[in-house]
Structures are given as structure tokens and as C-alpha cells.
């Protein structure tokens, strides 16, 4: 099976600080892959590089066989690579429906309405609040909206940046259920999370990041059982 996303020896530096020190990983078609790690491990930087928000200092990113690091962010969406930014990034002063419509910004086909119904079907809460301003939604609803908005672009690969950040546990559960449903519908997902336990339970494979490198990788079940992971991320004594 060919990899949908293939990252080789990726390095990113902010000024003199090397945030990524050469990482390799891949995401295959139809997979849900988790990228976990503590604060400052370089998870978000990885996603920023994947969505061309920062330029890599070295290494290559291949998406469907094509090197993407020279492409601008806005061109990636058209190729089916969608990012749900950290901190959700909903358009606070637009309504829920307008936010979702923005997700289909680059599309000109006639099936946008159908996709809108699909998102509303997936997240009935958004349907109830479709005319409300996005800024007035709760954090969990905003996260749902951000995911729904990215689905409007009909992504092949969805990059999720810490969807559980700042949410109440019950909302985290709901958001993760949605992520799972989206994955079952055939969207490949790269999930970046601090909540290691939930992310590993949901995903099939995982990578553990530590200060700019990938320290562990393997099937999620194995990582969940790994004593080092349990110690570092799940708060258990070794």
C-alpha cells in the first residue's frame, strides 16, 4: 500500500531554534494515525509544516506522491489536504452556516448543499444553531464546527490539531466520537493530541514525539501498553 502522506527527515527551525530535528513518518490511505507528545515536543510545528504554514529547513513532505513544501497553504486544500487549526479558529463573527460555507470556499460544484446536510446530520447541535454566530458557541461546539467546516472541503487527509484542547471531558468524548465517525466514512486522519490515552485508543497507529524527534512508534495498542509511554504521558509510575 502506498502512503498517502510520507514525511522524510523533516526539519523545521524558528530562527536558531530547531523545533523539528529530522522526523520520519507516514500515513496510509484510510488510517487514523495519532501523533502524541508533551508540550513543545513539536507536534503543532509538524502540522504547520504539513500545511505549508512554515517552510521546512530540510527534508521532504510527499502528499499523494507530490512534494508539497513548495506549495502555498491555500493550494493544499484543493488537493484534499485539510487542516483543523489549533484553537479551532472558527470565524467568530460569521454564523455557523456561513462558517461551514467558508469550508467549501474553493469548490464550485453543485454538491455543497448536500455536504452541508451531511455535516448537519453528523452534528445535529450545529444544525440547531445554524444561524447563531460561531463566537457564541461553546468550546466543544466550536471544535465540532471547525471539524465540520474542514469536512466541507471534502478532504482526503484531515489534519487535526489538538481537538480536545480546553474542552470539558464530556465534550472531548463527543468530539472524539465525531472524529471516529469521520474516519469510518473513509477520511484519512492524522490526529495530533496531548491526550495520549484517548488518541491512542482511537487510532490504529501512533507516533510519540519528544523534543523535536520521534522517540517511539508502532500500533496504538502496543504504545498504550508500553511502560515508557504510560510513565511519561499517562501519569503512571513505572
Amino acid at each position: 500500500m502506498s502512503a498517502l502522506l510520507e514525511v522524510k527527515a523533516l526539519e523545521v527551525a524558528y530562527g536558531g531554534i530547531r523545533a523539528l530535528k529530522g522526523i520520519d513518518f507516514e500515513v496510509n490511505e484510510g488510517e487514523l494515525v495519532a501523533l502524541i507528545g508533551a508540550n513543545g515536543a513539536g507536534k503543532s510545528t509538524t502540522l504547520r509544516a504539513l500545511s505549508s504554514l512554515v517552510r521546512p529547513a530540510a527534508g521532504t513532505i510527499r502528499y499523494r506522491g507530490e512534494v508539497t513544501s513548495a506549495l502555498p497553504s491555500y493550494a493544499l486544500v484543493r488537493k484534499g489536504l485539510a487542516l483543523v487549526p489549533e484553537g479551532r479558529g472558527v470565524f467568530a463573527r460569521l454564523s455557523v452556516r456561513e462558517n461551514l460555507e467558508m469550508g467549501a470556499y474553493h469548490r464550485g460544484d453543485r454538491e455543497i448543499g448536500k455536504d452541508l446536510d451531511r455535516v448537519f446530520g453528523l452534528m445535529p447541535r450545529l444544525a440547531e444553531r445554524s444561524t447563531q454566530l460561531a463566537g457564541t458557541l461553546s468550546g466543544g461546539e466550536q471544535q465540532m464546527l471547525a471539524i465540520g467546516r474542514s469536512l466541507m472541503s471534502r478532504p482526503k487527509l484531515l489534519l487535526l490539531d489538538e481537538p480536545s484542547m480546553g474542552l470539558a471531558p464530556i465534550m472531548v468524548q463527543k468530539v472524539f466520537e465525531i472524529v471516529q465517525t469521520v474516519a469510518r466514512e473513509g477520511v484519512t486522519i492524522l490526529l495530533v493530541e496531548q491526550n495520549a490515552k484517548l488518541a491512542l485508543e482511537l487510532s490504529s497507529r501512533g507516533y510519540v514525539m519528544e523534543s523535536g524527534t520521534i522517540s517511539l512508534s508502532g500500533p496504538s495498542a502496543k504504545l498504550l501498553a508500553d511502560p515508557k509511554v504510560r510513565e511519561a504521558y499517562l501519569g503512571e509510575a513505572a
Binding site: Y74, V84, V90, F91, A92, R93, L94, M102, Y105, H106
Partner: peptide, 24 residues
């Protein structure tokens, strides 16, 4: 218009606007 909406998207969140495929 499309352009008007793109302007609003940039005002609200530039990164998200890029993620929508807007050439900011």
C-alpha cells in the same frame, strides 16, 4: 461576494482562512 467573505475570514482568523483555501 466571494471576495467579501474572504476578507471577513481573514479578519476573523488568518490561519483558518488559509486552511479554507483562501489565497490570503
Amino acid at each position: 461576494s466571494r471576495i467579501g467573505r474572504a476578507w471577513v475570514a481573514i479578519r476573523e482568523d488568518e490561519i483558518a482562512a488559509k486552511a479554507m483555501g483562501i489565497n490570503t
